[in-house]
């Protein structure tokens, strides 16, 4: 099966079912303008390659490997959207369509280079979060200052990180990556948000307001945009 088709399916399942839900065969078929029978067939082969769990007559859910593919493609898609609208000045209405076509043909390297050029944007033009790359770095600054050649050295095992804003109230996480302005990163690490530190999301405030977090026995209020750029490994409650 061509890579593009696999990615389209994975993306569709991700969009419909979210990270861990089930996408119904009919819904996927409707979205991709395909017959349910052929969707079922594709689900079967995706299940074989370990990207989805297929439950006959119910639908398909992404496996961890599938989710990784989905996040990667979403990252490229949203980076492309930012690139098309901010750099090339293309009408934001049209960038989605364009990005849908382009996302399958660019390599990870191109995606990361775009990320660097665009100064590691946090969100796509329509406001969806761009997940961070998988490089072993603690701040985007390093990536920016490093020359291209060292980039490949830094790719490592994928890690599952989420923005701090994705934690539920009272959920714990450990700091994995800080993204953003140099001074902001300095201030955050001065306040104790250093890599590996445990934080607890205390509270989210209404209307996308600041979040309250607890780190090293101190409560901090951090603006939503800044918190979007603090990535943590979520700690699951026992």
């Amino acid at each position: 099966m061509p890579k593009e088709q696999i990615e389209e399916y994975i993306e569709a399942i991700y969009d419909i079912a979210g990270k861990n839900g089930l996408a119904k065969t009919t819904e996927v078929a409707k979205r991709l303008h395909n017959a349910p029978a052929s969707v079922t067939e594709v689900f079967g082969s995706l299940a074989e390659s370990g990207l989805v769990r297929y439950e006959p007559y119910k639908g398909a859910a992404l496996t961890d490997a599938g989710e990784e593919v989905a996040l990667k493609i979403k990252r490229k898609h949203r980076l492309l959207e930012v690139f098309l609208s901010d750099i090339l000045g293309i009408d934001p209405e049209k960038v989605h369509e364009e990005a849908c076509r382009m996302e399958h043909s660019i390599s990870d390297e191109v995606g990361d280079a775009m990320c660097r050029m665009l100064n590691a944007p946090a969100r796509c033009p329509c406001g969806k979060l761009i997940s961070p790359c998988e490089k072993e770095i603690a701040t985007c600054n390093e990536c920016r200052t490093a020359d291209g050649s060292t980039d490949s050295d830094k790719s490592a095992a994928p890690r599952k990180v989420v923005p701090l804003t994705d934690l539920r109230p009272c959920q714990k996480g450990t700091i994995a990556l800080l993204r953003g302005d140099k001074k902001v990163i300095q201030r955050l690490s001065d306040l104790g948000l250093t890599p590996g530190t445990e934080v607890v999301l205390m509270r989210k405030t209404p209307m996308g307001g600041p979040i309250e977090l607890c780190v090293r026995r101190t409560n901090l209020a951090v603006g939503h945009e800044i918190a979007d750029n603090i990535f943590v490994k979520a700690v699951l409650e026992a």
Partner: peptide, 22 residues
């Protein structure tokens, strides 16, 4: 240092300092 830890040096030192404080 940055190559060793994969973080920028000011973050490494802040983390070190916090480690001592901890």
């Amino acid at each position: 240092l940055e190559e060793m830890h994969g973080e920028s040096s000011n973050v490494i030192i802040s983390a070190e300092r916090y480690h001592v404080a901890e």
